[in-house]
Structure formats: C-alpha cells, structure tokens
Amino acid sequence: MNDMSPESYVTADGRTIGNVVMDMRDITLKFGGVTAIKDISFDIREGEIRAIIGPNGAGKSSMLNVISGFYTPQIGEIWYRGKKRPPMKPYQVARQGIARTFQNIALFEGMTVLDNVMTGRLTHMNASVISQALWWGKAQAEEIENREKVEKVIDFLEIQNIRKTPVGRLPYGLKKRVELARALAADPQILLLDEPMAGMNVEEKEDMSRFILDVNDEFGTTIVLIEHDMGVVMDLSDRVVVMDYGKKIGDGAPDDVRNNQAVIDAYLGVSH
C-alpha cells in the first residue's frame, strides 16, 4: 500500500526518517448524512513532518480529530507502533504521547501562561490522585520536575516574558505559541498541529515555521501539520496528504503533489 520502502532513510537536510509509526487504514467518518472522511489510508513515519492539505471542509481537521481520539471513525483501523489501537478517549490518546493544538485555539483562558503549559505535563503524572493528596513530598518532587521541563519549553518558544500573564489577555499570535508550548510540554512523540499559522502575519509565520522545524530537528518529534499556506507546506513538510471532499486525492513528496493534476483541479475549483 505504501509507495515508499519500509526502511528508514535520511533526508537531504540530514534528518533521519524512521519506520511507519502510525498507520491509518481505510478510515471512514460520517456525521449523520455528511461523510467527512471517505475510506482514506495513509501512514506517518517516525521523525517526519507530514502535512495534510486541502480546500475548506475537505475533512482535514476531522482526520486530526480521529487521530487524537476526539472522533471515532465508523469504519477503519488505526495502527500505532505496530499494534491495532482500540477505540480510545482523547485523554488516553494523549497519554500515549500524542499531543495536539486546535484550529480554533483552545487554551485555559483564565489561567496564566505558566499554568497552561504546566497542564501539558498532566500526561506525565505518576503519583495517583490519592497519593498526591496524601503524600505531599512526592507531589512536590513531581511538581519541581515538571516545572523544570516546562521552563525549558517556555525558553525554547521564547515566551519567558509572559509567563505570569493570564492567557485571555494575550494577542492571537502569542496564544497560538502558548498552545504549542502546552503541547510540547507533554514531550510528545507525535505532535498534531491544526493550522498553527492561520491568521498570523508574515513575521509570526516565520517564527512559527522555525519553531516547528526546530522541534522536529532537536527532539525528533514526528509532526502532523494541517496548513493552508502552500509556501509553508512546501518548505516544511517531508510528505503531503491531499484531501478534497473527504477523499484522498494525493499523497507524496511536496513536489510530486504540487504537480498532481487532481490536486491542481481541486485547488482551482474552490475559492479561498
């Protein structure tokens, strides 16, 4: 089914792309009469930046929601690290090391930036509820460890100066960055980003692109990215899935996809 060999390879810019880590098989997702995803299969390789593109309403966000457990497909299988994944709730998927951001920013508006990013560490909570409540020392040790990790992420994304600001007061671009910080704090193996650059100005887009590349490069994080800006997609991604009306109409390296007639038609046929 895959047009690429199962072995790992090294990209032109020297990053190692590993084996298939997640395999989506024949996924179909319906909402009442609307079929948001029609029988789509594709895979995600360890360490790659995998883009999903397509016109509005193509089903991109729905696909991300399927991966992160927010939607359960009626048909199809998800294979994660060689095992078929049973139907899972979003929090269970999160605890498997899959973090995400949302197309419409979903932050805890009443909490500070620091607290928001700290919630990213919830997937790593070892001490159970009860022992947290009863055993103050253990909870404290965990708190300190979490804080260290979170401060690193905050430094990495250059948001030190707004650490104590309630998120509700931040401008849009910074909110997007805080959301990324929260996802990164989880130390995810796969990072799902739903239009991380939507609504940003050129400079903010450049910053965000750089952060995404750095995350992938420095931590080897696998990234699945939905993006409308074709320039960005071509620059960042290793492979691209193209969706249109819930169907997959293209899959491959950015250059191949760009020259694919079906893709060109889909984009010309839809106004943006």
Partner: peptide, 28 residues
C-alpha cells in the same frame, strides 16, 4: 491545592475549556 498542584490545575482546566482539557490527558 487548586493553585499549586497538577491535580488542582486539572480541575481548573476542566472548568475553563473542556476540549483542551481532554487534549492534555485529563480524564473527566
């Protein structure tokens, strides 16, 4: 508890944004 512990943050987070809370691994 609410302000300085992870469990407390989880409680506040859930009160603030349901979806986001689920996405960071909070179990209802």
């Amino acid at each position: 508890f609410l302000g300085k512990t992870q469990m407390g943050r989880a409680i506040r987070a859930l009160g603030d944004d349901h979806q986001a809370a689920l996405s960071v691994g909070i179990s209802l």
